[in-house]
Amino acid sequence: MKDESTLLEVKNLKTHFFLDEGTVKAVEGADLTIRRGGTLGVVGESGCGKSVMSYSILQLVESPGRIVAGQILFHRQLKCNGQSQMMDVIDLAALAPNSRAMRDIRGEEIAMIFQEPMTSLSPVHTIGNQIEEVITLHRRVDHATARRQAVDMLRRVGIPKPEERVDAYPFQLSGGMRQRAMIAMALACHPSLLIADEPTTALDVTTQAQILELIQELQRDLGMAVMLITHNLGMVAEICEEIVVMYLGEVVERADVFSLFREPLHPYTRALLRSIPRLGQIKQGRLDPIQGAVPDPYNRPVGCPFHPRCAQMMPGTCDRIHPELIERRDNRAVRCLLCEP
């Protein structure tokens, strides 16, 4: 997939945390591709490394964590004289976290929104100030222009009376409004990729619907790509085109959304889909849970990381051989010994 439409490629990314108790391999082999303007969902349970992976893309992993291997190729579009477009491929994994180049990417090309808006909004500055700061950091504009753009952005994310709310402090807004303000801040410079890390988990169902609707609408208008990180299979089914399933830091399956939900290949994906109660499917007997729990990060199982919980475990094989992510012809990929040709 080396065509024009590729925006971001993550290749065999490994991010480890070096603690006194041992090394936590938070991300241990993540591969994915995001198309320009596409929507990719990353699903997995807690501890599967989905958040650490997104932090790695922005080089926001804090010590004692470090990217130890892999590439993060960002295809940057350079706009020369309006029309002619040049592609510049940057390996984000090779940039220093605090370098000029990395800071240019953050906010301007790739933006991120988080689960809890309060942690990423400063409580002592008005939301207007915070959005203006992002704009002035990346664009050569004067104060008045920045403020006008901030108000526009707030209007765009559906905050009522943006001229007044621009001077509000985050604590004066409700949870849903705060999340909207954070989205406004993230999109202030029209990034080409928005990483949304559990953007609605802290919100109620009806507010969640509002935010999802907003993200989809903005994506259509601004033509940006969205990487949605969540544990909620319903959310990815609703808005994503492609899905990556992660387990214990590894991508175990990658597929387009329809194939994944129709015909999941990896035993983990299959088990996950079977174990959740679905709305509108009146009790058809018991749920079919996955046995056991996600293993402790210090003791990763040898062989396939899922084998201790897998119903189709092949003794002597799955507990010895670590499967590779196999690319299939139908543009899907799966990491399972059962699926190897």
């Binding site: 409700s174 507010t207 969640q208 619907a209 609707e213 089914a237 609703e238 939900f261």
Partner: peptide, 25 residues
């Protein structure tokens, strides 16, 4: 009704039109 329609369903073929409530609780 709004609550039910807002729940994301884990089935892409059931992508329904959500009823998005205005405003806050």
């Amino acid at each position: 009704e709004a609550l039910l329609s807002a729940v994301p369903k884990p089935d892409p073929t059931m992508r329904s039109k959500r009823i998005v409530l205005e405003g806050d609780v």
